[in-house]
Amino acid sequence: MDIKQDFLPERGKQEEEETEESARTIESIKQLGESSPPVEVKSDIHILPIIGQIEGHMVLPPKNKTTKYEHIIPQLVAIEENPNIKGLLIILNTVGGDIEAGLAISEMISSMDTPTVSLVLGGGHSIGVPIAVATDFSYIASTASMTIHPIRLTGMVIGVPQTYEYLDKMQDRIIKFVSTHSRIPEEKFRELMFRTGELVRDVGTVLIGKEAVELGLVDEVGGLNAALAKLRSLDKSREEVKD
C-alpha cells in the first residue's frame, strides 16, 4: 500500500483556482455593499481539552476516548515557544488514567511562563486532579465533580510488602504535587483520599463544585467567561512585569 502516492497528489493548480474564486467572492460581497467580508480571526488564547482517559505508554482499545501525552507535551512546548499565544485554557473532563503521563503533563503545565488557567467541567477525577491544580489559576463549574481515591490495582492481590510500598510511593507523588500546587494541606488531601463512608463500597471522596474550592483544591467556582477574563488579566500583569 503506497499511501503517499495515493493520497498526496499535486496541489498547485487546485489551490490557484481556489484563491481566484475566493477573491471573486469577496469582490462580489463588497459590491453588494452592506455586509463586510469575513476576516480571518486567529485567537491568541489557545485551548487544550483533556478528555476521557489519559493515555500513557499503552495504546488503549478504541472504545476509550483518550488524551495522549505524546500529543499534549509537544503542543505545550509549541504554545510556550509561540509569542503570539497569550494564554492557555485547559478544559478538563477526564476520568483519570496513566499516572506518569498525568504527572508529566502536570509538571509541564506548572513550569510554563505562558499564563494557564484550568476549568473543570463535568469531571476531573483521579489523575485529573494534579492537572487541574497545575495551572496558574483553576476554576471548577458548580456542577463538576472531582473524585479523590487511593491508587489501586484492580484484580490484583497485594501480597508482597514491596508492591505496597511502590503504590504508596506513587500515591505520595500525587499527594505532594497537589499539595504544593494548591492551597490544600497534604494531610487534608490524604484524609480525603482514604475517607470511608463517602463512596459506595469504596474509600475516597467526591467533591462537587464549591466543595473543591472550600477545601482549597481549586481556586474558584466559575465558567468560561471567568476563565478567559482571568487569562487576560494574567497576561496583562505579565506584560507589565516585562515593561
Binding site: Q53, P61, P62, V95, G96, L153, L167
Partner: peptide, 29 residues
C-alpha cells in the same frame, strides 16, 4: 503502567486482545 482512574481496569482494557492497530509511516518534508 499504573492507572489512577475512577474506571476499573477491566473496563478500560476490554477488547485489548483483539486490538491490533496497524500504523504506517509517511514522511512529509
Amino acid at each position: 503502567m499504573l492507572n489512577y482512574s475512577i474506571y476499573p481496569l477491566e473496563l478500560i482494557l476490554e477488547g485489548y486482545e483483539n486490538f491490533n492497530p496497524e500504523y504506517e509511516e509517511i514522511s512529509l518534508s
